[in-house]
């Protein structure tokens, strides 16, 4: 497949998006789509401003951000620690191998009952559920990134007196695996947003709860406001992350 030049690509993408929104708006206005099932795109900005004015938008976004940040932070730190340790320590690797295989297929949302039993309907419960999906992504990417390191890098470390475990970890394993580990972190940032809404559906205040409320009232335009909010927050976080990643991986480009 031939690649379009950048400017043409951007133009085509913009056309695709506005085209769909226009089509949607026009078919609603022409009565081709039932108005109670989907909102009118042109009503979304007003609805957004209303949510903003009432202070609801900021409140639920801040609440979700706090679950999200805590969940992503804990999941990432644990996932990377366990993944890297398993890749470097054969004993630990063997000890955790079956456990990981057993727990891995369980979707984060299946943990909701336990989250409520252990933590109640609290912010901690939401953060816990978010951290599970993030954990597995980071665990697997960092494990395989460290496993893929060329043994010759370690031999160089040994030759130059950096053979101790801490030195090898700090001077070879982490920098050499950094591209993979950062890729996992980035995927985890996305995964976190996917579970944040679901984790809030059972009554913990946040974007998810607000969406549930709105759908109960058939206020589909409010639902769409928060869908777009999540998309925007994801784009923002992803963008900031890419900036950091570029800097950390300067040696690669």
């Amino acid at each position: 497949m031939k690649n379009l030049p950048r400017s043409k690509r951007t133009l085509a993408s913009a056309c695709g998006l506005t085209g769909l929104v226009l089509l949607w708006e026009l078919s609603l206005r022409a009565g081709l789509l039932p108005g109670n099932l989907v909102p009118l795109p042109s009503s979304i900005p007003a609805e957004f401003l209303a949510e903003l004015r009432d202070g609801i938008w900021l409140e639920v976004v801040l609440a979700s951000l706090s679950h999200y940040s805590i969940g992503v932070l804990i999941g990432s730190v644990l996932g990377i620690s366990v993944g890297v340790s398993a890749a470097l320590m054969p004993g630990f690797d063997a000890a955790q191998s079956w456990l990981a295989r057993l727990l891995r297929p369980i979707p984060p949302l299946a943990w909701i009952p336990f989250a409520i039993i252990w933590f109640g309907v609290t912010e901690t419960a939401a953060a816990f559920i978010i951290s599970i999906g993030v954990f597995w992504i980071n665990y697997f990417t960092s494990y395989s990134a460290v496993r893929a390191i060329e043994p010759s890098y370690y031999e160089v470390a040994t030759v130059f007196g950096q053979g101790r475990f801490v030195d090898r970890l700090q001077k070879v394993s982490l920098p050499a695996a950094a591209p993979g580990i950062l890729g996992g972190l980035r995927a985890g940032l996305g995964q976190g947003w996917m579970t944040v809404v679901a984790a809030e559906l059972f009554g913990i205040p946040g974007i998810g709860q607000r969406m549930m409320e709105a759908s109960g009232l058939l206020a589909t335009d409010i639902v769409v406001v928060y869908m777009l909010t999540i998309a925007a927050l994801y784009a923002l976080f992803d963008y900031l992350f890419i900036m950091v990643q570029r800097r950390v991986l300067r040696w690669q480009q």
């Binding site: 010759s152 890098y153 031999e155 160089v156 001077k171 070879v172 920098p175 050499a176 950094a178 040696w251």
Partner: peptide
């Protein structure tokens, strides 16, 4: 070594 084996992440 036969190959330079520098660490690409270090200047």
């Amino acid at each position: 070594f036969q190959a330079p084996r520098l660490y690409p992440w270090r200047r």
